[in-house]
């Protein structure tokens, strides 16, 4: 296929597509309305629900804080609470930022720059939240273990002997996968920005 042939084929396709006036008034209205409702629901519901769960966990921890009787258990409790407040707020803020983007005001070039930067930022957030979630999980198990079952994980040396190494092993395997994905995405974002500067 030659370049000129490409252009004439594109013209033929355009003509055919234009001839097929299949979009109806009703369908166009549906496409705008349902999309809007769908988008609002799909983004807001799970995130708000997760935030509520986190805030409920914070309230539970505060009301049972007196059960965390040793300093290191109190420390894990405080750190769990901070994570349960900060993480959902950060997520909701980033969703708000995405929703606030005005597509009509940017050019193709600006959109590409935003795309590349967002891609890099998103992967950074993914990487950070991966490690944070792992730490929060450990902290939550310690705090809730003490409050709900009266177990002080730090005194269970037998279990710690196999729990700690296997936890580190799992973290290592998954972190390699996350880092690989991160490097690939940031390389691609970097290439787009480089190409735009040419």
């Amino acid at each position: 296929m030659e370049l000129e042939e490409m252009k004439s084929l594109w013209e033929d396709m355009s003509q055919k597509v234009d001839q097929q006036k299949i979009l109806t008034d009703e369908l166009i209205l549906d496409l705008t309305k349902e999309r809007f409702e769908n988008r609002m629901r799909s983004i807001s519901v799970p995130e708000t629900l997760s935030a509520f769960i986190c805030f409920a966990a914070v309230i539970y921890l505060i009301s049972n804080f007196n059960l965390l009787d040793v300093w290191y258990l109190q420390l894990t409790g405080v750190l769990t609470m901070i994570a349960c407040i900060v993480l959902p707020i950060l997520t909701l803020k980033s969703i708000k930022r995405i929703k606030a983007i005005d597509i009509s005001k940017s050019t193709y070039k600006e959109s590409l720059i935003n795309y590349a930067k967002d891609k890099a930022r998103f992967m950074k957030l993914q990487k950070t939240s991966f490690y944070t979630s792992f730490i929060v999980l450990i902290l939550a198990v310690i705090s809730f273990g003490k409050i709900m079952k009266g177990i002080d994980v730090f005194t269970m040396t037998e279990k710690l002997n196999w729990l700690v190494p296997s936890g580190i092993g799992i973290l290592y395997v998954f972190s390699q996968w996350v880092l690989k994905k991160y490097r690939r995405a940031t390389d691609s974002a970097h290439n787009i920005l480089k190409e735009l500067k040419e």
């Binding site: 597509i103 009509s104 959109s111 891609k119």
Partner: peptide, 11 residues
Amino acid sequence: IALNTAISNLN
């Protein structure tokens, strides 16, 4: 708008 939307959708 169409091009910008297509790009923003990639992320």
